[in-house]
C-alpha cells in the first residue's frame, strides 16, 4: 500500500470543516465572554465556507464559491453590527460576562 500519493481526498477537507464547526459550537457553549462567544460564531461561519469551497471544487461549479463570497459579505456586516451591539451592552452594563447580561433570562 503506497502512502505517498500526491492527492488529498476531498472528504478530508469536509471532515476538517465538520471538526472546525463543532469546535465553534463548543466555544459558543463554554466561553463566558461576549466577544469570544462572537468569535466562535465567526469560526462556525468559516468552517461552513470551507465545505462550500470543497463542494465547488468537486463539482467544478463556480456558484459554490460565489456563495462563500456572499457569506463573507454578510459576515462583515454582521460583525460590524454585532460589535456595535457589544459596545452598547458594555456601555449599559459595564461588563462583558455573559452570566451578568441576563435581563432576558427566564
Amino acid at each position: 500500500m503506497h502512502i505517498v500519493s500526491h492527492e488529498v481526498p476531498l472528504v478530508w477537507y469536509l471532515i476538517l470543516s465538520a471538526v472546525l464547526f463543532c469546535l465553534g459550537v463548543v466555544g459558543f457553549l463554554i466561553k463566558r465572554n461576549l466577544i469570544t462567544v462572537f468569535m466562535s460564531i465567526e469560526l462556525m461561519l468559516n468552517a461552513v465556507n470551507l465545505s462550500f469551497v470543497t463542494f465547488a471544487h468537486q463539482w467544478h461549479e463556480v456558484k459554490g464559491q460565489i456563495f462563500v463570497f456572499f457569506v463573507m459579505m454578510v459576515a462583515a456586516a454582521e460583525a460590524a453590527v454585532g460589535l456595535a451591539i457589544i459596545i452598547a451592552v458594555f456601555r449599559a452594563r459595564s461588563t462583558l460576562a455573559v452570566d451578568r447580561i441576563d435581563l432576558m433570562k427566564l
Binding site: E42, V53, H57, Q65, M72
Partner: peptide, 18 residues
C-alpha cells in the same frame, strides 16, 4: 486551504476581509 482547492479569489478575500 482555499488556494489548495483552486479558489484563488476567495483565498485573497479571506485574508483581506476576514
Amino acid at each position: 486551504l482555499y488556494l489548495l482547492l483552486g479558489a484563488e479569489f476567495l483565498a485573497a478575500a479571506q485574508v483581506i476581509v476576514y
